[in-house]
Design a binder for these strands. Structure first.
Lengths: 191, 191
DNA sequence: AGAGTGATGGGACCAAGTCGCATCACTTAG
DNA sequence: CTAAGTGATGCGACTTGGTCCCATCACTCT
């Protein structure tokens, strides 16, 4: 595979994050991102489906890991234990470099509706992925939905905490999931 | 307020839903929707922020009702009971007309990523709304987040069920929320 | 040296969305 | 009854996201 200036994709990600931070997401054109990365608009769209996706790269990989984590859980383990396996499984992707860019990335996303939309879709996708993987191991649909939703909540919370304190994401996520579980178990119904 | 052909907004909604159903969301241009409604593109964008929003109208009203439902819950009521109040509060917007269009609307949304994105954002917005309203009545942040997330899950499930069986949405949502609560309480942790 | 391959550049093109200005239907003051 | 005012609409120019097609370049392998 021929290539002259390597890492076009990474250059695009860096350029985009820089520009979004400097001048805002809406005030940045795709052509400008490409230009700063030494590329053109055409090439940008060969690497990313749209303008938003440059901030959400590599999440297909997460889906695979989530599935592996759930289907790899012990035979008799309950739904939430399998979800814990999923969260631990994705920890390998939470590198130091990702942590370094995390806060800026979150700030950009928080400041724009289009990006929050994409983020919400990604999270919903994670939940759906986990639901399907849980059902495949025999978990009832309702239980799967509840466990997956709580898992995504723990994932979001864990991500935020991990950005602050660092360390092994698996550890952090395990703790946030347990916190969420306890809180959920303590909720009282109407009566 | 001057106006000659009334109900421009409703005409746009109907035209959009029809066209999306007939020929798909992506194959439909905004100008085409406007044309079928006897209007122009400009006017369309005066009524809806973008092409997606025509399928999600009136959800600002839902936010108000959710807040009212939560802050109107009895003094000592727990987080989930307040959430139940929120779901019951929005029942007034679940009219027969909405139910008639519901299935087509859901089918269109399910068939397109942009629309699923918008849907995911709306749901996330509902959750955020409920979290804030819960915190305002003294619920701890974690408990609020868990209760809100389960509430949105129950809302989604309740909506689907209500489209099938009809009746009072409040009743349906109350039941789905209780189901979700029981399932959540039964989840076992890792140990 | 020459054919093949994968990544890139470039430009035409369409649709979403914005903007400013003119216009029309209708209301209300005089 | 006329004239000014108001809100909704029409219109056209413009920017940008996104698609498509084709040429080109760097590199590999035979």
């Amino acid at each position: 595979m021929g290539r002259w200036e390597p890492d076009a994709r990474e250059r695009l990600v860096r350029a985009a994050l820089d520009l979004f931070s400097e001048q805002g997401y809406e005030n940045t054109a795709v052509a400008q991102i490409a230009e700063r990365a030494g590329l053109t608009k055409s090439t940008y769209f060969r690497h990313f489906r749209d303008k938003r996706e440059v901030l959400f790269g590599g999440q297909d990989e997460l889906v695979e890991l989530l599935i592996a984590g759930i289907s790899g859980a012990p035979e008799g383990a309950g739904a939430l234990v399998a979800v814990e396996g999923a969260l631990v499984a994705i920890a390998v992707t939470f590198t130091e470099e990702r942590r370094a860019n995390g806060p800026r990335r979150l700030a950009v996303i928080a400041g724009n509706d289009e990006l929050r939309e994409r983020d919400a879709l990604k999270m919903a996708g994670f939940a759906r992925t986990m639901v399907e993987a849980l059902e495949r191991r025999g978990v009832a649909e309702l239980d799967a939905a509840v466990a997956a939703e709580l898992g995504v909540l723990a994932l979001r919370r864990g991500y935020g905490e991990w950005l602050e304190v660092g360390g092994d994401f698996g550890e952090v996520a395990r703790r946030t999931l347990e916190e969420v579980r306890v809180a959920a178990a303590a909720l009282e119904g109407a009566e």
